[in-house]
Design a protein around this nucleic acid. Sequence first.
DNA 1: TGTGACAATATTGTTCACAATCAGATCCAT
DNA 2: ATGGATCTGATTGTGAACAATATTGTCACA
Lengths: 221, 221
Amino acid sequence: MATATRASAAVNATAVADQIRAAIFAGELVPNQRLVEADLAEMYGASRGHVRAALAELTVEGVVERIQNRGARVRSVPLEEALEIVEVRAALEALCAARAANRLTDEEALVLRRIGADMESAVEAGDQAAYAQGNTELHSTLIRLSGQQTAAATIDRLRAQAVRFQYRLFAKPGRSQQSLPEHLAIIEAVCAREPQAAARAMREHLMSVGQAIEESASSAV
Amino acid sequence: MATATRASAAVNATAVADQIRAAIFAGELVPNQRLVEADLAEMYGASRGHVRAALAELTVEGVVERIQNRGARVRSVPLEEALEIVEVRAALEALCAARAANRLTDEEALVLRRIGADMESAVEAGDQAAYAQGNTELHSTLIRLSGQQTAAATIDRLRAQAVRFQYRLFAKPGRSQQSLPEHLAIIEAVCAREPQAAARAMREHLMSVGQAIEESASSAV
DNA sequence: TGTGACAATATTGTTCACAATCAGATCCAT
DNA sequence: ATGGATCTGATTGTGAACAATATTGTCACA
């Protein structure tokens, strides 16, 4: 069970929340796992009060579920909700892609093209980890380039909720072969400074992600 | 200064948070106003611990701003951010409108048309309050009919942040004359079960809202 | 009159002890 | 054995006391 996320002692509630969030993200804390305040306090070297506040924060974010007098647990996001989240992400990331296409500088275009090239060679080399990294980089770069901070914050929060489903995706055989052209299409549209096309490409890509999640979930469960 | 929001004593943190949120929404608490824990505790009949937790919650939601050792205050949302919020809402409500168009039953269509008729007569009668209510009802009905709970929750949170700017809008002369046809177009598209058209109509409507906010803000400040 | 240091006050941050509550174990009567 | 009542240990909820920090007010001095 992992040698623990001991890390440096977290002094305030936000720091504890960050650590717990990271642990969930890393798969150290799995859905439905109980989160006992005293345990977390010891684990992160914080007081119970801080842990309590952190759990409250994570509850608002939707990462953690709390029941009166019965404590907190990692929320298990049902498939339906995961699909909803992808839908919402599609709407928001499409917006970001469009904005990015509008504001793109030549240097930024080069960065995007470089990411695209990296992803291409990752697929050729069959390097799943590199492809996954390129995927993350592409999405977060586009969000950053959009300058839309509200959308960025919202997407972050949503992504934190659906972690569980992200895993399965890259494990799916042939997944990268399907999604690579989608990613390249997004890059092309943004670099061509065509907001509408960029939005459409992003929406289509995330719809395909949604479909893949659905398939992999129904086969796995 | 309003005879206070004494209301029934709030027993848990969430209840206190709800009351504070409502007070902000009602304009009793204005941006930048200090929120002293002890005062709020007495006002809502809760312990300081509850108030503290409530403020933490509202901070995560973005309604309240906290500075270390200097307490909490109602966050003042700058114009730029308000426009961002409208942009994000446009993306999300467009999604909802499209989904609603897909799932609409005949009874629901009647409800929408009734709301549209009410808004029309409100404008004719020059009844701003009725028009504002119709507006709220239309938006929230479409969100509900979409069945997209994730989007619904996200929109709610965003709307809570930008309250300050909603006020000014209905005060603006001629505003309802401009937005009425936009609203009716949305209703028509949804009732015609045309998702794309519904999304477009909603997007256009909210873009016009954004523009109106921009104008009214630049003239007011 | 203005400015800086210092003291007084107000407010938030943190911890701890105790009360309230729940899940599961145990026991007893049937 | 089974069903229900009761007990027990674990865990969370609550409030109050104390510590840390910022803000305001005061006063001496230039």
